[in-house]
Design a protein around this nucleic acid. Structure first.
Lengths: 211, 211
DNA sequence: CCACAATACATGGCAACGCTATGTTTAGGA
DNA sequence: TCCTAAACATAGCGTTGCCATGTATTGTGG
């Protein structure tokens, strides 16, 4: 073995595919290598075919999502932070609906199967903070609660971003999270306040300004 | 205008596409008309192209879902019935994951934009029954609550059926619905019982039998 | 009743698709 | 310094969605 792969080529193809996805351009074997000086064989050398490239793009989507979740500011209110993480998840999906969709239309597995776990882990950490702050009951399974938050965020945003429901529907995330968090042990009034500060999506007639 | 379309051809192509989808066979312009005596032009006459056929298949998916939801038995416990509707939704998606996926990966709109409303209406009716039975507070917006139920069911099943989470995750639907229904006014103990009888998906170690 | 005309449908071909057999170039180890 | 294995280009195969063109068919006006 003598000639080695150039890792930059791999990254370049993934980023180009993601960029074309965002620009709503069709991502085909030929179009993804056009104007790159590469031939179609590059896709086979680095990914084994188009399906391998899609797998890598899905992986990239999870990576970017995890990075964006990691930028949510951490305050003294873990319930607000948990809500803000859910909102960041939704915002990311709305901003990149095509990349978000390919993340979940996988017939085959991701390259790194722990991508979903990584996504969940940030939520789990915040939930444990809420338990330590006596907002959530300490006995509850943080991972189960994190999965439930994920299901709410994913369900809402996938029905809105590429689905049949209008954008207003996202406002329902607030009462859903409140119901979940109160069930986990939080005080209703306090919880409503925390969620209200972390969830930016408002119902249609809502007046966000102060007189 | 002299020669008229044959509506049976339209139905035949839609059902053939849905059947091929279920059988995991690739649905292509040529494969869908193969062995039907029709040429590829039939797809253009009746649907204007493959995208039109996909739209019709999506519509068919919503129609079948609504029909299946309509078969859920109606008992004296509307909260159990509401839970059972959610479970039927999940079961349908698990049984037809490919048809379920095309229902929601629409770049364009459905033929009949009210398909989503029809899906919701069955839930709304059951929620109103729960309000009349003094299980849910009468003031709440039934449509909002129905949408929240939908988001929970859709979020869970899409993360499980074609997503990264294991089948066990579906058990989380029970506590999520309980939290939602208690928030809507139901009594926790009664609610847990109703949901427990309507939601068939159990956590991994659960022993469903009685000694 | 029947000829006209509009429409359903078949045929064949086009460009683009994913993929791969084959050949060429390149770079690390002997 | 060769030599060889891997990276990469070229070109072509079968298939895709689509459509221009031609033919067959059927409701309708005279």
């Amino acid at each position: 073995m003598v000639r080695t792969k150039n890792p930059a080529v791999r990254t370049r193809l993934i980023e180009r595919a993601a960029q074309m996805l965002r620009a709503r351009e069709p991502v085909t074997l030929r179009s993804v290598v056009r104007d790159t000086g590469l031939s179609t064989m590059a896709v086979y050398t680095y990914f084994g075919g188009m399906e391998g490239l899609w797998q890598a793009v899905r992986q990239e989507g999870f990576t970017r999502l995890a990075a964006e979740l990691g930028t949510v500011t951490r305050t003294k209110d873990p319930v607000r932070d948990l809500t803000a993480l859910g909102a960041a998840y939704v915002t990311n999906a709305l901003a990149n609906p095509d990349l978000y969709r390919v993340m979940f239309d996988a017939t085959v597995d991701l390259e790194n199967p722990t991508a979903a776990d990584d996504t969940l882990h940030i939520l789990v950490t915040t939930i444990e903070r809420a338990q330590q702050a006596d907002r959530f009951a300490p006995g509850a399974d943080a991972r189960s609660l994190a999965t439930q938050c994920w299901a709410i965020g994913h369900g809402l945003v996938s029905l809105v971003a590429t689905g049949p429901l209008p954008h207003d529907t996202l406002a329902l995330g607030a009462p859903m999270l409140v119901a979940l968090f109160v069930d986990a042990g939080d005080t209703p009034a306090t919880c409503r306040d925390s969620v209200g500060r972390g969830w930016p999506f408002r119902p249609p007639g809502h007046d966000a300004g102060k007189p």
